[in-house]
Design a binder for these strands. Structure first.
Length: 204
DNA sequence: ACCGGGATGTTCT
DNA sequence: GAACATCCCGGTG
């Protein structure tokens, strides 16, 4: 078992579609809370019409244009926050949306923050649910995951990503809907959507 | 189980 | 004024 260390800056450098599947099974840590990343989506800078960065830098997406390894938090639908790991490079605004966590540590705190979650599997199985459970909001936009300057980081506890991650189109977008830039840990109970049933070997 | 609608506020057209 | 990288609740089967 390796000692849990924050991922280095170099881990986040490069195209989000390469970084995203490598983030699976890493641990998101905020203070005493920890959860395993089991579902992510890549947003590919200015070549991706679904990306907040597609039309260039604005006040809202400024963090995406900063250093890889920053946390980009945005507010949506009037009440929810979503969190991304910034990738790419300065000015090359790739990002990986964290879509679902498998809670590992601090479940009692998460339950208190997520009263609507009837089962523990509902605590962090969605991009806004995980932010609520982990108390991630606009105050943490721009936090550095590498230096852990504000208590939020992503660490490697020695669990490798899946050899063959699940893959699908991204969820909740209205453009670039055919790009299969969502990855997940197959069989995990904490995904934001149930995994599609595998095709049968034979018809009934 | 699945589906439909409402909540709520920021951002950009 | 529309859109929004969503969630929750209450309806119907």
């Amino acid at each position: 078992m390796t000692a849990p260390n924050p991922l280095p800056r170099s881990f986040y450098e490069g195209d989000s579609r390469e970084v995203a599947p490598r983030l699976l099974n890493k641990l998101l840590v905020h203070g005493e809370l920890a959860g395993r990343i089991v579902e992510v989506e890549a947003y590919a800078a200015d070549e991706d019409p679904a990306s907040h960065a597609f039309r260039g830098e604005t006040a809202r997406n400024r963090t995406m244009f900063g250093a890889p390894g920053l946390l980009y938090v945005y507010f949506t639908y009037g009440m929810h926050f979503c969190a991304n790991a910034v990738c790419g490079d300065v000015g090359w605004a790739h990002a990986v949306l964290l879509r679902a966590l498998h809670p590992v540590r601090g479940l009692d705190v998460m339950r208190a923050r997520r009263p609507a979650a009837r089962r523990d599997r509902d605590l962090a199985n969605g991009p806004a649910k995980l932010c609520s459970a982990f108390a991630i909001d606009r105050d943490l936009d721009g936090a550095d995951l590498v230096t852990d300057d504000r208590g939020v980081t992503i660490v490697d506890d020695g669990t490798p990503p899946p050899d063959e991650p699940g893959r699908s189109a991204r969820i909740g977008i209205s453009v670039a809907v055919d790009e299969a830039w969502r990855w997940y840990v197959p069989g995990d109970a904490h995904l934001s959507r149930p995994e599609p049933r595998r095709a049968r070997a034979a018809a009934p």
